[in-house]
């Protein structure tokens, strides 16, 4: 018989730049072990997941991470008093810090999370990537952090254009000259603050790995993928699982060295000389995780089990050549639902 559990999930923004919430939910709903009630936690009132009642049983609005953890905890206490949440899976980069800081308090409320430690989270930050690469002997592009527009003109000579301009949490643009760097700097910093990371542009094919570490250094699952088509926002529209031993090795090495705890996505560039550069470690499950589920590795289910303290055997295999193709779909809903959410904060 399936076990009844309640899982709260953020990242219901299943838009053209999707959050991982809905794919994570699909993975958990596919589980043969759990009979799950899904509580959606939404920041904005048009996150599509709120209105996807097949996936999300009930949604509550929660305060933005920028408000601080006290407000978040207060709101979660209220939600938990009604829903009795077993596991909470945050899916936004920008909120992870707040949830990691709050994880002890959440556990006292009976809410389990399975997140990286603050140390893991900090050292893999884009701004710290160069040191990260040195420490763990992983190739990374040269990069530096800047804090003001003026810094753009004093960038080290070692940079040659084009360069990548990246935000602390989100957004990455390519710039071919200082003027473009300035434009992207202002655009990104107004949204996500400073620092802005200026990164060497490395030519090659972008490949990704979705992986899950159990916190002891063991890799529970890892599936490599190449994006087959990329939208103008840089998001994969279609992707295919790869048989690439080097990528898996790099993933295992990273997880072992950092004792990574939780879901992650490695963004890599494979150069024409067959070298792999680590561009970024996203400290959470990526939006394309359902490809891994489809290929035989249910990472969301495994993460829920790890959060609940269960011992999970590593996945040893996945199906190569599985593809995902994203599509969009127009949900029809009534203004009454929008009204209810806007006035009560619940739906």
């Amino acid at each position: 018989m399936k076990r009844k559990i309640v899982v709260a999930v953020t990242g219901l923004n299943n838009t053209d730049n999707p959050g991982p919430g809905i794919p994570v939910i699909r993975g958990i709903r596919d589980s043969q072990l759990f009979d799950v009630r899904i509580i959606g936690l939404a920041y904005e009132n048009l996150e599509p997941g709120i209105y996807m009642h097949d996936h999300v049983d009930k949604t509550y609005q929660v305060p933005y991470p920028s408000t601080g953890s006290d407000a978040l905890i207060k709101r979660l206490e209220y939600i938990n008093s009604i829903e009795n949440i077993d596991v909470l899976i945050p899916n936004f980069d920008a909120e992870l810090y707040t949830f990691m800081k709050s994880s002890k308090k959440l556990l006292q409320m009976g809410i389990h999370t399975f997140l990286p430690t603050l140390e893991q989270f900090e050292e893999r930050h884009k701004a710290n990537l160069v040191e990260f690469g040195q420490k763990y002997e992983i190739d990374v592009p040269f990069s530096t952090s800047i804090f003001s527009e003026a810094d753009i003109y004093s960038l080290p000579n070692s940079f040659s254009y084009p360069v990548m301009v990246k935000g602390k949490f989100y957004d990455a643009y390519i710039a071919y000259n200082a003027e473009q760097v300035k434009m992207h700097f202002n655009k990104i910093s107004s949204k996500w603050g400073v620092p802005i990371i200026i990164q060497e542009f490395i030519k090659g094919t972008e490949v990704n790995v979705v992986a899950l570490g159990d916190g002891t250094g063991q890799t529970i699952g890892a599936v490599p993928m190449r994006k087959q088509y990329i939208t103008d926002k840089g998001k994969a529209w279609g992707g295919i699982t790869l048989d690439d031993a080097k990528m898996l090795e790099l993933t295992r090495k990273t997880i072992k060295a950092t004792k990574w705890r939780g879901g992650m996505e490695l963004e890599l560039i494979k150069t024409n000389e067959n070298r792999y550069y680590l561009l970024e470690i996203n400290p959470r499950i990526p939006a394309w995780v359902y490809l891994a589920v489809g290929a035989g590795q249910n990472h969301p289910e495994a993460l829920v089990r790890l959060a609940l303290g269960e011992k999970v055997e590593p996945y040893s295999d996945y199906e190569v050549g599985k593809m995902f193709v994203r599509y969009s779909y127009d949900l029809i809903c009534n203004i009454g639902e929008f009204e209810k959410l806007s006035t009560t904060g619940e739906l």
Binding site: Y43, Y64, T67, A71
Partner: peptide, 10 residues
């Protein structure tokens, strides 16, 4: 964008 539930407890 954020609404009252985003910040009320502040």
């Amino acid at each position: 964008m954020t609404n009252k539930f985003g910040t009320r407890t502040e």
